[in-house]
Design a protein around this nucleic acid. Structure first.
Lengths: 146, 146
DNA sequence: TATTGTTATACTCTATAACTATA
DNA sequence: TATAGTTATAGAGTATAACAATA
């Protein structure tokens, strides 16, 4: 039998694993890989940008972004455009297909959240989020100290 | 502004991402990769077994397990032993180093859980776990229907 | 000089298919 | 015939290092 703290952590990880499984189905259907979906999702969050900014946001090397963008150009999800002011840089911009895919990602994310938490009474959902906030804060303080 | 359901889901994912970051530090320090740590963790859960059972538990192909075990044999974490009754099979068994690593994994998992949730009042932690249980159940019912 | 992106190279994870030894 | 594991092959993600073009 495990202690109650471990139980809580394991259930958090279990839920996020299920969400990842759901995302994997999206990836299969769209013919995309996790890394490319991650790039598209980020593009949806921060808007068109150069590859360096994507590398920072994704926490990978610039070389890696080159490869991911190559793949997404081939699949027709993004375009490389000249940067308006810096001739060294390229502007990674979603195509119509890319914009549609990003929208579907955002919609299914929101739908999933609503289906998962829609039946939870408001006060309990509030307490749930409060606990998560405290936990995340605790974690970030722990990380700082090392 | 996002709705409260999306906020809840995003915070769950944020927390699990932080946990993954913590695990990544363990991987760096031990010189192991995620996939190999996952295999060791599974070995700790289910005990020594043949490669097919590991493949099922990890949800990857037998070929993939061959490669992971190759790496862990080279790093000295596991040994391939003859299966006592089936001469086709090999028994993947942790070495002393492997057992120590598995123990450290389990300890640091338990420690992390205690540090994250140790300060949460018992009733609120209980409600937290209840909400997670409901959510996981909801999710699994959603998956069945498709 | 510093930065952006690419070429060169290499390793890991992952998969499918064909094969050997054994059940 | 079926199963356990390996060899052969291939693609994707990731990294470091060297380099060209531009700032």
């Amino acid at each position: 039998m495990v202690d109650k703290h471990t139980t809580a952590l394991d259930k958090v990880l279990h839920l996020s694993m299920l969400v990842a499984t759901d995302l994997a189905r999206f990836e299969q259907e769209s013919g995309l890989t996790s890394a490319r979906v991650h790039l598209l999702w980020t593009l949806g969050l921060v808007g068109p940008g150069n590859q360096q900014s994507l590398a920072s946001a994704l926490n990978v090397t610039a070389r890696n972004v080159t490869g991911l963008v190559d793949g997404l150009v081939t699949s027709g999800h993004v375009r490389r455009e000249p940067h308006p002011t810096d001739r060294r840089a390229t502007l990674v911009t979603p195509t119509a297909l890319g914009r549609r895919t990003i929208g579907e990602l955002q919609d299914s994310h929101r739908d999933l959240a609503r289906r998962l938490f829609g039946a939870v009474p408001a006060p309990r959902l509030h307490a749930f989020v409060t606990t998560l906030d405290e936990t995340i804060t605790t974690f970030e303080r722990l990380m700082e100290k090392q």
